[in-house]
Design a binder for these strands. Structure first.
Lengths: 230, 230
DNA sequence: TTTCCATAAATGTGATCACAAAACAAGAAT
DNA sequence: ATTCTTGTTTTGTGATCACATTTATGGAAA
């Protein structure tokens, strides 16, 4: 049983072994380090994380609760496969959830916060022009997160991240097969709408951003990849 | 540390201790058996479930992933409190998620399935007229679930149930304070729309159902309860 | 070469234990 | 009466182990 390689991750002091395992596995899945259908083992991951089965098992159980992993009836632990229909469901869920979250964040965003979001968008473009796919992907997630999290009483972010996690594995495939990235100008549209505090326009821009290009990738390209990933 | 009383739950043979603990705790929270702010202990629940800390801890960890519980920094495990703002966020999330899920289920619902949904609605009304609050609540959840689950590739149900779980604790309070239940006629409206395969009308009826009465309870009444529950 | 079966290895499960941190309780000092 | 201190108890954490199930391996039979 070969255990997937986990992206590096600095462990803050005081963080429990379980929290560390959860954060690291979650991050790995989110950026597509695990391919659909991959099976993992508790002991294998425990060894990779230099800990014992107990905290790893808890982390894996949590990841199943948010759809990032599945415990099969065989007691095997796998990264879920994604069918084209399921993929389409996830994208439509992203659109519904995130345009809603964006709309509800508008009233809470200060000009300073918007400036920070612009800076993140600049970082995305820089990463794209540099061809740094993983960095662009993470910065893109941060762009969306910064918007939604402006709402202090927000409860949608965990659900949105659950959807991101379920889409993570095909992002990994996409990153291997897609060679060119291009700038997402819907972000500028969203930023302009944020500045005007135009909730409808913000929601529309975010929805279009997701619909047209997923994290800087071309949706059709990902759609094709599903045939070999499903 | 007094452990909350768990509703009875028959354990299917072959079910692991962990799955049993998770299902039972989840059910308990969903129907409002735990009050907001209640703290639970691993050992206490393990004793109540006649098992050991390990599987209970895993179940609790899963429940935190879906927002049903919180591990505080003190390492205390509590049922989250709900502020009025958070409550409003959760309700608006329900409306967005469930009207979306309902719309996408319409095309997959057979006439036979609709008949079964009608039967569930009859059971809801019977329970309401009988004053059986808990039974009405569970049947109401089943009514919604049967609609959304008709979509075979659906991925929204776990997210919806996450929101239900987060609303669960105040349902418990509501059930204690609300004496009269009344029939939700939005269900009939939704059923008629389902029969016509009118997606917009179904989504609208479900949205209105959530907005006007939450699980058979009056929303304003629950709003008042928040002041003493937040 | 393929299929079948028996043995061995790997794996999830759950209970137990030692440990450290937190909460609690009781008494002393102010 | 209130606050602080000290000792006890409770509680979460994580490692370990035994067990049952599953998977993998390898050789025998067709």
């Amino acid at each position: 049983m070969k255990t997937p390689v986990l992206p590096a991750f600095e462990r803050p002091e005081g963080m429990t072994t379980h929290d560390y395992a959860f954060a690291r596995l979650r991050q790995a899945i989110m950026v597509g380090a695990f391919r659909p259908g991959t099976s993992v083992t508790i002991r294998g991951l425990a060894e990779a994380l230099e800990s014992s089965p107990t905290p790893v098992r808890e982390a894996l159980r949590q990841l199943t609760s948010i759809g990032a992993l599945r415990f099969l009836e065989n007691r095997r632990i796998v990264v879920p496969r994604i069918t084209p229909a399921r993929f389409e469901e996830l994208i439509s869920l992203r659109i519904v959830l995130e345009s809603h979250a964006a709309r509800r964040a508008v009233a809470h965003l200060s000009d300073r916060q918007i400036d920070r979001i612009v800076a993140i968008d600049d970082a995305i473009e820089a990463a794209i022009l540099d061809g740094q796919k993983a960095a662009a992907l993470i910065a893109n997630q941060e762009f969306h997160r910064q918007i939604y999290m402006a709402n202090p009483d927000q409860v949608a972010m965990p659900l949105i991240e659950s959807v991101w996690l379920q889409l993570g594995p095909i992002l990994g495939i996409a990153m291997e097969h897609v060679t060119k990235l291009y700038v997402v100008d819907r972000h500028r549209e969203a930023i302009d709408a944020l500045r005007r505090r135009d909730e409808d326009a913000v929601a529309e821009a975010i929805g279009a951003d997701i619909r047209e290009g997923i994290g800087g990738f071309d949706q059709q390209a990902i759609g094709k990849l599903l045939s070999l990933a499903g």
